[in-house]
């Protein structure tokens, strides 16, 4: 579903992404760990078409992103680290707007259901986003991703700023999506969260994917991952 072949990105002399080859099947969650600047966000940017790779290719559902910039986005959803939204609109209106941009015209009930699933009740949904906390905005972002019913989901440090309860709910949501056959690529610093949800954990350093841990049976321990991580970087 999500696949990269020898994906490379240079910025002048600096190499941001070095020969990344990766395949994420439906129902898989691949977590990317790594320090800031290790290439996690660059990887996601290549899949979103926001960065033109210097060589190699990124594909979503078999569509090469650079050749099908609009078409490939029909199959993916994206949840950034900070979801700002439009402060003058309500959470509900934001969700409706972003869904319409993706070509969906959901019924009101359906939209409310997505908000509910993301953890926002109707009352909050009808307040303006300018009154929201970061966590609430993040939930609208999740609802936007859900409403797109995408087969590939890209998450860039999605749980930063969420309280432990919200973060935990979010993990449950990801597991549910995993069971529904969504392929996910998540960049994160949160080793515990990664351990909970990931089927595989990749550790990046200087643009290279240097270590991939299998966690399909959820056998890894957080302490173990942390040690490997610290040794790797």
């Amino acid at each position: 579903m999500i696949s990269a072949q020898q994906l490379t990105k240079h910025y002048g002399d600096k190499i941001a992404l070095d020969n990344l080859t990766l395949d994420i099947a439906p129902g898989e969650i691949f977590c990317l760990l790594g320090q800031n600047g290790a290439g996690k966000t660059t990887t996601i940017n290549c899949f979103l078409g926001f960065v033109q790779p210097s060589s190699g290719q990124a594909c979503i559902n078999g569509l090469e992103v650079t050749k099908h910039p609009i078409e490939s986005k029909k199959h993916l959803a994206y949840l950034p680290e900070v979801v700002m939204l439009y402060p003058n609109l309500t959470g509900f209106e934001n969700l409706d707007y972003f869904s319409r941009l993706a070509g969906f015209k959901h019924e009101k009930g359906e939209l409310l259901m997505y908000l509910e699933t993301a953890g926002l009740d109707e009352k909050d949904g009808k307040r303006r986003v300018s009154e929201y906390s970061k966590g609430m905005r993040q939930k609208v972002g999740i609802a936007i991703a859900l409403a797109k019913k995408a087969k590939a989901l890209f998450l860039d440090e999605p749980t930063s700023g969420l309280d432990p309860k919200a973060s935990n709910d979010f993990s449950d949501l990801l597991l549910e999506l995993r069971n529904n056959g969504v392929a996910m690529l998540m960049a994160t610093h949160d080793i515990f969260r990664a351990k909970d949800v990931a089927t595989r954990i990749g550790i990046m350093k200087d643009g290279r994917l240097v270590n991939v841990l299998d966690n399909a049976q959820n056998i890894l321990h957080a302490k173990e991952i942390e040690e490997i991580y610290l040794q790797t970087i």
């Binding site: 979103l48 900070v82 979801v83 700002m84 972003f98 993706a102």
Partner: peptide, 14 residues
Amino acid sequence: ENGNLRLLMAQGVH
């Protein structure tokens, strides 16, 4: 600046 543009473009806006 606030990152909405990324979300917007990820929705497949031309």
